[in-house]
Design a protein around this nucleic acid. Structure first.
Lengths: 128, 128
DNA sequence: TTAATATCCTACTCAATTAGTATGATATAA
DNA sequence: TTATATCATACTAATTGAGTAGGATATTAA
């Protein structure tokens, strides 16, 4: 489980689109505003599209919009797409102890709290 | 910010020593019990020693014990030593916006929650 | 005092991941 | 039909994770 620039970028993209919702916005404009290279942004936003957080429109005057209302999309959802699912069990993928492992208690508790925190924050909360 | 096997191992070592507290225990025994290679364990426990979470005794019949009572050492403290401090600001180390950045709100909130969760769990809670 | 024991230190390896870049194919609407 | 914009794939360079290897150093029991 990690939180890196990938999640940061994903969140910025989503918040940017939340601001202009429900207007279509193209990657060139977003890249300029968010200071991300156009090419990298294209790749990242592609992941958000595959997970149906944004919708795309090809061709002239095309671009992206959020797939749902900013009130209905959480920061957690976006970050989880970019970073992978938040762990809720032992870090050791080969671990078979499951219940005996004392540290698994910690990771489960941690995962719950992270999920509660990040799913509680909606994109609409982040546009001031 | 990340949570990996390094933190898992650190926590296991600490919990293991919490169980035998306040008896000295050597790395060979811990390695066998926790299924970590002796050499790797030596390196990891060295980091815990430098941060004064464990104390070491050299020479024959030497080994390690917790530097404090298991009730006074939290999971967060141990994990933070292994993984680095939990982020409380924007992931972007070059970011100078500080307050304008909408995502920084998310990371600050997340950091607070993680800290609250992990510092609330003591080693004594993890030995059944 | 010396031999056994155990910690301590540094450097190395190997694979995976992060944070991009580069090139171009594909779809669409004006 | 052409300009525009998304979409797909492959590549790279630097960093990190996870672990190994070899030996130096300190201590204490015999």
């Amino acid at each position: 489980m990690k939180f890196s620039m990938k999640g940061e970028y994903g969140l910025r993209l989503a918040v940017n689109l939340a601001r202009s919702y429900p207007t279509i916005k193209n990657t060139k404009d977003i890249a300029a505003e968010e200071n991300i290279s156009l090419k990298y942004l294209e790749r990242l936003i592609g992941e958000l599209r595959k997970k149906e957080i944004v919708k795309s429109f090809k061709g002239k005057d095309g671009g992206y919009i959020l797939a749902r209302n900013p009130k209905k999309i959480s920061a957690g959802e976006v970050i989880e797409v970019m970073e992978g699912t938040f762990t809720s069990k032992c870090m050791d993928t080969h671990c078979v102890q499951v219940k005996k492992c004392p540290s698994s208690f910690v990771w489960i508790k941690l995962g719950e709290q992270i999920r509660k925190t990040l799913y509680g924050i909606k994109l609409s909360d982040l546009i001031k």
